[in-house]
Amino acid sequence: MEREPRRVPSTLGGLVYLVVVGVSAVGMLLVAFGPWRRGVSLIGFALLAAAAMRAVLSEHEAGMLRVRRYRWIDVGMLAGVGVALVVLSSVIPDQPG
């Protein structure tokens, strides 16, 4: 008897990962076709949410958020890039034209 392939993520971290990818895709569309600052900020906040979830989820439940062996390296890198994107999107001055 064949088993049906799984259609949902097997862990909460996998679900969070898919949400972060979806929010980042929306952010990229905003960068391309709309207010780019909001798009970059949206991507940054999605990465900060991923960092928070990686910090609180167990190793088994982290799923696709678990990239490296040590949790705090993942958290630090996700949070660092997230903070950098949010800060940069708010401090870059408007360009004429």
Score class of each variant (00 low, 15 high):
residue 20 V to M: 14
residue 59 E to F: 02
residue 69 R to Y: 05
residue 73 I to C: 04
residue 91 V to F: 10
residue 44 G to P: 02
residue 84 A to S: 10
residue 75 V to E: 08
residue 92 I to F: 08
residue 38 R to N: 09
residue 44 G to Y: 03
residue 27 G to M: 03
residue 25 A to R: 01
residue 2 E to L: 11
residue 61 E to M: 08
residue 35 P to H: 13
residue 28 M to P: 00
residue 66 R to V: 00
residue 68 R to S: 11
residue 46 A to T: 03
residue 45 F to M: 10
residue 49 A to Y: 11
residue 70 Y to M: 01
residue 38 R to T: 05
residue 5 P to V: 04
residue 76 G to Q: 11
residue 95 Q to P: 00
residue 55 A to W: 06
residue 32 A to N: 11
residue 67 V to F: 14
residue 24 S to G: 13
residue 21 V to F: 10
residue 64 M to V: 01
residue 35 P to S: 10
residue 38 R to A: 14
residue 72 W to S: 05
residue 78 L to C: 03
residue 56 V to H: 08
residue 41 S to M: 12
residue 23 V to G: 04
residue 82 G to F: 04
residue 40 V to D: 01
residue 69 R to E: 14
residue 27 G to W: 03
residue 6 R to N: 12
residue 58 S to A: 10
residue 20 V to N: 13
residue 78 L to G: 02
residue 69 R to I: 00
residue 15 L to W: 15
residue 67 V to I: 15
residue 24 S to F: 02
residue 15 L to Y: 13
residue 14 G to L: 07
residue 8 V to L: 15
residue 41 S to Q: 14
residue 90 S to F: 03
residue 84 A to V: 05
residue 31 V to Q: 06
residue 10 S to C: 03
residue 40 V to A: 14
residue 42 L to H: 00
residue 14 G to M: 08
residue 2 E to W: 10
residue 88 L to N: 06
residue 43 I to C: 01
residue 13 G to M: 04
residue 31 V to S: 02
residue 60 H to L: 07
residue 33 F to N: 08
